[in-house]
């Protein structure tokens, strides 16, 4: 702990540090005496920092480990190895009680606005519950007042407090999820595909809301998403994951304008741009094949079987995640 404290004093603008995080889920066989026959390497040695006040985008395709990384930071999964330091406190060493005050500071917004709200609770109760748990606004009337405040901050009519989730549309429910996260006055919010389930016009409303809240309450976001357009719009820095590994990390515009890793390039090229003239002139670099299984990932660089720049060496050596330009990190030996 003492060493970590020194890091804090020199590096105080860093809020979250993820160091060599690994999350391997065991695969068991046998009903009576389960035996571990393998591991799903959902996250396999990921390191990054999140600075205070910034929005870090974490992108990648399904199964790349971006959600698991978020869940590990929230301590919803017990990491296999590696450390997560929040404001220099090692979260892995805390017990349930010790974690409580931090849970107030770290909140989460989930993807599915249908399954993340309890259908039997009224909206007002849903938003008040975290305040109850963390003993904020101990007085009932103050709590009610704050619920109404939060509803209007999130662009909802205060009369929704007496309604149930099924009476609301997807966009409105997502706003309730955001209001619930804000209820305990957090400083750090993990948005796990928070706008993915919404229609474009509603999605844009929620993106603007997240932006307004960030400015108003000085929030730090970890924005987990697969939609690269939304990430470019909202994030300061972006990290790209593939098969449990971090492949590239850079400032937002740098990553989109000068991608270095072949996977990032392919990913960006695959996203269609809403402009037919640009699309006609664009060269599409298709990435061949499908994402391999994280149970038995390829040796060396995990992307090498699909990579157009792969050489013989790529299947042997695991590329180091290194800084090739100031602030621009890449895990590829061929660049």
């Amino acid at each position: 702990m003492s060493m970590e404290n020194t890091i804090k004093s020199s590096d105080s603008d860093v809020l979250v540090q993820v160091k060599n995080l690994k999350m391997h889920f065991p695969i068991t066989e046998g009903a009576l005496i389960p035996q571990v026959v393998g591991h799903v390497k959902a996250v396999d040695g990921v390191s990054f920092d999140i600075r205070r006040g910034e929005t870090l985008g974490l992108v990648g395709e399904s199964g790349c480990g971006k959600t698991t990384t978020g869940r590990c930071i929230l301590q919803l999964e017990k990491a296999t190895s590696g450390n997560i330091l929040y404001d220099s406190v090692n979260l892995g060493q805390l017990d349930r009680i010790g974690m409580m005050p931090l849970r107030q500071r770290i909140q989460v917004i989930f993807q599915d606005p249908f399954s993340s709200l309890n259908p039997r609770m009224k909206i007002g109760e849903i938003i008040a519950e975290p305040m109850h748990v963390h003993n904020i606004e101990a007085d009932n009337r103050a709590r009610e007042k704050r619920v109404l405040e939060l509803l209007s901050v999130c662009g909802l009519n205060p009369k929704f407090a007496d309604r149930y989730p099924h009476e609301m549309s997807g966009g409105q429910r997502q706003r309730v999820g955001i209001a619930r996260a804000l209820a305990v006055r957090p400083e750090f919010i993990i948005c796990d595909e928070a706008v993915s389930a919404l229609d474009v016009s509603i999605q844009a409303q929620v993106i603007n809301l997240l932006e307004d809240l960030r400015d108003e309450f000085n929030l730090t976001y970890l924005f987990i998403a697969h939609d690269l357009s939304v990430v470019r719009h909202l994030c300061h820095r972006v990290a790209v994951m593939y098969l449990g590994k971090m492949v590239e990390l850079a400032d937002c515009d740098e990553l989109y304008d000068n991608p270095i890793h072949p996977y990032t390039k392919a990913l960006l090229s695959a996203v269609p741009i809403p402009d037919p003239t640009i699309e006609k002139g664009r060269k599409h670099q298709m990435v061949k094949g499908e994402i391999p299984s994280p149970i038995n990932p390829p040796s060396g660089c995990v992307f090498h079987p699909r990579c157009i720049s792969a050489t013989d060496g790529c299947s042997k050596a695991i590329p180091e995640f290194r800084e090739v330009k100031p602030g621009h990190w890449v895990a590829c030996t061929e660049v």
């Binding site: 357009s229 989109y256 640009i278």
Partner: peptide, 12 residues
Amino acid sequence: LLRSVPRMDLPR
């Protein structure tokens, strides 16, 4: 609709 979509090819 067109104004609601963030663009990936342009800086914000």
